[in-house]
C-alpha cells in the first residue's frame, strides 16, 4: 500500500514536470488523495469493474495497469491501448477492468449501475465500483445512478472522493447538504463517511461496502473526505480561489506522511527502507518515461478505425483522400 502511495505521488510530480516542459499536453494530479486512491481500490477483486474518473492513476496502478501504459496514454503514442484518442488522464484498460471515461462529469456513475445489474443478472460475483468527485454529485446522472441502484438493489459501490473543490468551486457551494454520504439515505441505502486521508480507514470502509455488495446486500455510497493539494489540472492556478493557509492546513494532514508515521511507530518501516523504496519508485518512473518517449505517434490512418466495427464507405473515402493528398 505504502509503495503504491509513493508511486502515485512521484508519478504525479513527474507528470506535472513533463507537462511544464511541454513533453505531455495535459495532466490531472491526485496529490493529497493517495489514501483514497490506494485504500479505495485495494479491496477489489481482479474481476471487479471500476468506472473511474480522471484523477485515478493510483487506482489504475493497484488494478495492475503498468506505469508504461499510463505514460503511453498521457503521450498519446502508438503503444497506448486507447490508441492516442483521448487527452491525458482519460484512462481505459480493459485487461484491468478500468473502464474508459468521458470528460463530461458524472456520466459513468449511472453506467456502473448497469454493469452491476448485468453482473447480478448473470449471477456473477462481480462488484462494480465507481469513483467521482464532489462536483459530480450535482449532476443529474449522480441522482439517476443512486436512484436506480436503490430500486434495483445492485452490487455497486459509489465512491465519492470529496477533495473539497470542483475546479474552483468549494464544497460548501456545491451542496447545502452537510455532506455527500447522507444523500444515500434518500435513495434507500447506506451512506458512509470516512477520513479520506487515512488509508487504512478508507480500506476498511471500502472493504465492508464491497463485501456487502458481493453478498447481495446492495449498494453503498462512501464519501472519503480529502483535499486536492494541487490544482484541478495542469491548466489550473488554485491561488486564484483559495488561501495558502488552507493548503498548509491540509498539507499537515498529508496521507503519505500520516501512513509513514504510523508504520514507523509500529516498527513496520525504517527510514532506510523508506529511502530505498522512494529511490526505486523514482527510477522506475524515469525509465518508463524514456521508453514511452521513444514510441512514435499512432499512424495517421488509425484516425478512421474504431468509429464503427467496420469502416463505412464514407470514412474509407476520407481515409483514402488523406493518404493520397496529406492533411
Amino acid at each position: 500500500m505504502y509503495r503504491y502511495m509513493l508511486m502515485v505521488r512521484r508519478f504525479n510530480e513527474r507528470m506535472l514536470l513533463l507537462q511544464r516542459q511541454g513533453r505531455i499536453a495535459f495532466f490531472t494530479e491526485s496529490n493529497g488523495e493517495e489514501a483514497c486512491q490506494i485504500g479505495g481500490a485495494w479491496p477489489l477483486n481482479r474481476g471487479d469493474w471500476v468506472y473511474q474518473s480522471y484523477r485515478d492513476a493510483g487506482m489504475c496502478l493497484v488494478r495492475g495497469v503498468t506505469l508504461k501504459a499510463l505514460v503511453d496514454q498521457l503521450m498519446g503514442n502508438a503503444d497506448d491501448p486507447n490508441k492516442g484518442r483521448q487527452m491525458g488522464a482519460h484512462w481505459g484498460y480493459k485487461e484491468s477492468n478500468m473502464v474508459s471515461l468521458a470528460s463530461p462529469v458524472g456520466t459513468h456513475i449511472v453506467q456502473a449501475v448497469g454493469t452491476a445489474y448485468a453482473a447480478k443478472f448473470k449471477k456473477d460475483k462481480t462488484v462494480c465500483f465507481t469513483t467521482f468527485g464532489d462536483g459530480a454529485t450535482s449532476q443529474g446522472e449522480f441522482h439517476s445512478a443512486l436512484n436506480f441502484a436503490g430500486v434495483f438493489k445492485v452490487p455497486v459501490v459509489f465512491f465519492c472522493e470529496n477533495n473539497q473543490y470542483a475546479i474552483s468551486l468549494p464544497f460548501r457551494r456545491q451542496t447545502a447538504s452537510e455532506n455527500v454520504a447522507i444523500k444515500a439515505e434518500a435513495y434507500g441505502f447506506e451512506g458512509v463517511l470516512v477520513d479520506g486521508n487515512d488509508v487504512l480507514a478508507v480500506y476498511k470502509a471500502t472493504k465492508a461496502a464491497v463485501d456487502k455488495a458481493r453478498s447481495g446486500g446492495g449498494p453503498t455510497l462512501i464519501e472519503a473526505v480529502t483535499y486536492r493539494m494541487a490544482g484541478h489540472s495542469s491548466s489550473d492556478d488554485p491561488n486564484r480561489y483559495r488561501s495558502p493557509e488552507e493548503t498548509e492546513h491540509w498539507k499537515a494532514r498529508d496521507p503519505i506522511k500520516r501512513f509513514r508515521a504510523y508504520m514507523t511507530k509500529k516498527g513496520l518501516l525504517t527510514e532506510q527502507e523508506d529511502r530505498a523504496m522512494q529511490e526505486k519508485v523514482e527510477n522506475e518512473i524515469v525509465t518508463v518515461i524514456k521508453e514511452s518517449e521513444k514510441v512514435p505517434q499512432p499512424p495517421v490512418t488509425s484516425m478512421f478505425t474504431d468509429v464503427y466495427a467496420e469502416i463505412p464507405w464514407y470514412l474509407k473515402e476520407e481515409s483514402d483522400e488523406l493518404t493520397r493528398e496529406g492533411s
Partner: peptide, 21 residues
C-alpha cells in the same frame, strides 16, 4: 420497467452492454 429518467435508462443500458448483455 425503470424509474422515469432517460439518462438513467441509456446510461444503465450502456453499462449492461459493456458487461455483455
Amino acid at each position: 420497467d425503470t424509474p422515469l429518467s432517460e439518462d438513467g435508462i441509456i446510461g444503465m443500458a450502456i453499462g449492461m452492454a459493456l458487461y455483455g448483455l
